[in-house]
Structure formats: C-alpha cells, structure tokens
Design a protein around this nucleic acid. Structure first.
Length: 474
RNA sequence: GGCCCCAUCGUCUAGUGGUUAGGACACGGCUCUUUCAAGGCCGCGGCACGGGUUCGAGUCCCGUUGGGGCCA
C-alpha cells in the first residue's frame, strides 16, 4: 500500500455579509472531493480584516452553508483567534532569514512607486530591506522603529502544476518581496492562508480562479515555512448574464437571495455542481450521494461559466416534481401568504400544483388560494370572461351545484356540462368565469379538481360573492 | 501598464486526431386540453479568427481577437 495520506481540504470564506454562489460552489466541490476521496473537509473563517468582519456576518455564511447542507468535518476555525500562530511564524521566518524587516515608510514607498510610474517602469519593491544585517534589524525593531515583514522571494521561476489548468509558470521578475505582516503587526491575507494551510496539513487547495495569480506567492511561502506545498485546483469564475463577475448588485449572487426566492437547497446544490463540473453522461439531476460517488477533479472545466437563473428554476422544478407531497407542503408553508387549507386538502392541492409551480414561493401562493377567498379578481379576466349574462348563468350553476350529490370533480364536471347543454352555451363560457370566481385568476389547475378540493360550502360561497361583485360593478 | 487564465449552439455542457459535433435550459411549432403548466414529438441554433503539424483537426502547436483575473 502506498502511503498517500487522505486528502484534507478546506473552504475559507471571508465574512463579507453573504455567501456568494461562487463560494458555495467552491465549498461544494471541496466537500465532494473530500467525500469521494474519503478525506476531510475543513471550514475556516478568514476574519482577520477586523473592520469588515463582524460576528453577525460570519453567522450568515455559516447558516447559508448549513442550509445548503454543506457540513464540514472540522472547524470552523477562526483566523482572528490564531494571531499567535502568525506572529510565531513571522518571527521564525525572520530568524531563519527567509523573511526580513523592511523599514521604509509608506511615504517612501509611494515615492518609489511614483518614480517608477513616471519612468514608465512597472513598480517593484527595491529590496533595500534585504540587505540590512540581522543584528541591525533586531536593534532597530527593539528601538521601536516601524517595519513591515517581507518574504525573501527566490530568484527563480515558480511552476504551479494546477490540477485543472496544467502547468503554469510565473517568471521570477513578476514577483517581488511581498508584505507578510503590516507595520501595525497585522498579518496579511497571503500569509495567514499559508500558515493555516500548513498548520492544518491541507493537501489540496480548490478555490476560485481569481487566486491563480497569487499562487506563486503561496508556493514560495509554503517552501519558506518548510511545509509541503499542497496541490492546487483553480476553478473558473461564475459570471453574470452580462459576462461580468457575478456581483451582489446583480441580485443573483447571494445564496441567501435564492433561499428567499423559494429555491430548494438541494436544487441549488445540484445546479451549482453542474456549473463547471459534469458527471460525463447526459445527466442533469443528481443526488448528493451520486455526486459524492462520482465527483472528480479531471471532469472540471477550466473556463468560466455564466449563472443562468432560468436553468436554476428548471432544476428547482425538477425537484418539486419529485418531492413527496408532505415534504413539499412543509417547505411551501412558510411562503403561503394567507395560510393553508386543512391538511388533506393541502396535500391534494400540492399534487395539483407541483407541475405548475417552480419555486416554494409559487407553491405557497397556489396553496393559499384554497385557504382564503379571493380579495380581488384579475381585471383582464373580468374584461375577458364576464358578460352581461354571466351573473344569471352562474346563479343557475350554483343551483345545479347545490343538487350535486357527491362533490367530486367527475360529478361537478358532468353537472356543469349538462347545464351548459341546457343553456345552449359552450362549457368554457361557464368554466372561465367560475375559475375567476373561485381563485381570482384566469390560470391554474383543472377547474373541477379545484371546485372539488374547495368543498361545497367554500365553492358556493365564492361563486355567490362573485355574482354579487359583478352585479355591483355593472 | 506588467504577469496569468479562458474560448463547442444565446446559456450550462459532452467530446481527449477519423462523430451526420451529442444532451440540457431557453426559444419556435405540434400534441394533450376548459385555462395555465407538466409530459411527449419535431425544429431553430455552435466548434471566435488566421496560420501551422498530420493522410485527417472541435480535439495538438503558434499567433490574432475577444473575455476574465491578479499585481500595481
């Protein structure tokens, strides 16, 4: 047996106030990879940016992940509680000569930068700090002089063997000695990430493409830290319909937003899984178990993908079509604006509307039609289906319905058609206004199922209300 | 500006040198039908461009264009 250690992966969001769908996908891929490889999936919160990070914002990310069912095996770890680790690592790197103190003031650096710009050169740090002898550096630090800690970058091309992109080379000239710790002693992003990844023995880093260009820095850092360099897999970005990076103001970027729109978590997960990964066959609807079984890095595409809300809605509808009625009812309940009818009717209504609704919101709304009489009627519907004869016709229908012995769709259908025949009008001349009377709208489930479901009392009451209403408007 | 990544229908994608370039969403039509859906059937629609390599390129290489990212 080769002793390749089991993979350890992590998702490391910074708490920005909402979980971005791109982040959700990254979390999902990490989780699927860990499951598939029998590894460990770790959650780590990158909350060192104290001004922007508040506990509440972290809570939102956590609850969005939980809602999606993306449960971590380890963590969450909070970077804000690990400052000692970063400080120790910085001191060690300095002691080993792998990093050094640089004493330039921000003003001096600014000047250098401006000079470079004026001369049309691209700016790189001069590297003056490199030359300061260790004892002098220590002395100046002890004397209270302000400094930043910079990494001594090797003068060699850094090669990243990305699992998705293949071999990517970064020439040494492109990289300068970047800052690890600021002059106020706060460790910077690239530094904390690597210290943590090393400390947590992360073996595979799956993350967004936007970090590819940072990877050579990380590789250099891992080496300096004496840690094994993890494998990298950079995922393509998720774009908006405008082909721009999906942003908050685009509206669809936040997982929480889709939750509010009545999208099911497993549908969003399914949709996101397919945004960049494919199981290889023409399958669109996959359970978590199937994904966990079949996920593999070499079936991930390198190109960015556009987030298409229409397709998400379709995936959601697929889940709606398959979900047990009880479950669907439970999930639609919070979205029913005027409550639900009693249990049995509600379950029947769910069956009637599951192919007609695409979200929990739409389902909730549909179910509420059975719970409360319509407060208003669709104006277009009134114009289209109400004629002077309508009121008396419906009154005759009420009378006919009164006499129906078993209140079933079948018998109600027969009763209406018989009446229509007697009146020498088409059945649809009654059907349309009746739907409007019962539901307030012109579209919906098959009418006689609706009438049956409503029950005699309710149906007749609504018909009478409707007649009164159109009489008074006239 | 420098460095890096990406490129198959409008969108998500299958495709790993020889395919009538497949599927899904969306769109259009037909069907079913009291409406709206769902379903079924049919259709529209794609290898960004230019050079190579090869008997043969969507597939490999180079460039162009376009999009994106990182650093400043």
């Amino acid at each position: 047996m080769p002793n390749t250690p089991l993979p350890r992966v992590r998702f490391a969001p910074s708490p920005t106030g909402f979980l971005h769908v791109g982040g959700a996908r990254t979390a999902l891929y990490n989780l699927l990879f860990a499951r598939r490889e029998k590894g460990t999936y770790i959650l780590r919160i990158e909350d060192t940016d104290v001004e922007r990070s508040r506990e509440e914002l972290t809570g939102q990310i956590l609850s969005a992940l939980e809602w999606l069912g993306l449960e971590h095996d380890e963590g969450p770890y909070y970077q804000s509680r690990r400052y000692d680790l970063y400080r120790a690592a910085a001191e060690r790197l300095i002691a080993e000569g792998k990093a050094y103190r640089a004493f330039e003031t921000p003003e001096e650096l600014d000047l250098e930068r401006k000079r470079a710009e004026a001369e049309g050169r691209s700016y790189r740090y001069s590297g003056t700090g490199r030359e300061i002898p260790p004892d002098e550096s220590d002395r100046r630090a002890r004397a209270g002089e302000k400094f930043v800690v910079r990494l001594r970058m090797p003068a060699e091309t850094i090669v990243v063997d990305d699992l998705i992109r293949g071999r990517v080379e970064f020439p040494a000239e492109a990289l300068d000695d970047f800052v690890l710790v600021r002059s106020d002693e706060r460790p910077l992003y690239h530094f904390t990430v690597c210290v943590d990844d090393a400390d947590m023995r992360i073996t595979h880093v799956l993350r967004g493409d936007d970090h590819l260009a940072n990877t050579p820095k990380h590789v250099a850092l891992f080496r300096a830290l004496g840690a094994e360099v993890p494998a990298f897999a950079h995922l393509g970005m998720i774009l908006g319909t405008d082909r721009k990076k999906l942003s908050k103001r685009y509206g669809a970027a936040a997982v929480e937003e889709w939750r509010e729109q009545g999208i099911f978590p497993e549908a969003l997960v399914n949709f996101l899984a397919l945004l960049g990964w494919s199981p290889g066959e023409d399958r669109e609807i996959l359970s978590r178990e199937e994904m966990e079984r079949e996920f593999s890095l070499d079936r991930i595409g390198a190109s960015p993908s556009v987030f298409d809300p229409e397709k998400l809605l379709w995936v959601n509808a697929q889940y709606m079509a398959r979900m047990p009625a009880e479950e669907l009812l439970r999930r639609a309940e919070p979205h029913a604006p005027s409550g639900l009818p009693e249990k049995e009717a509600a379950l029947a209504a769910v069956e009637l509307h599951r192919t007609r609704a695409r979200t929990a919101i739409e389902m909730g709304r549909a179910l509420s039609l059975y719970a409360a009489d319509p407060e208003e009627y669709d104006p277009d519907g009134l114009r289209k289906h109400v004629r002077p004869e309508t009121a008396p016709e419906i009154e005759r229908l009420i009378a006919a319905f009164e006499k129906v012995e078993s209140w079933t769709a079948h018998d109600l259908d027969a009763a209406l058609r018989q009446l229509a025949a007697e009146m020498k009008v088409s059945a649809s001349r009654l059907i349309h206004p009746v739907r409007l009377a019962l539901t307030g709208v012109t579209v919906g489930a098959p009418l006689f199922d609706v009438v049956a479901l409503l029950g005699k009392e309710t149906a007749l009451r609504r018909l009478k209300k409707f007649v009164a209403k159109i009489r008074e408007t006239k």
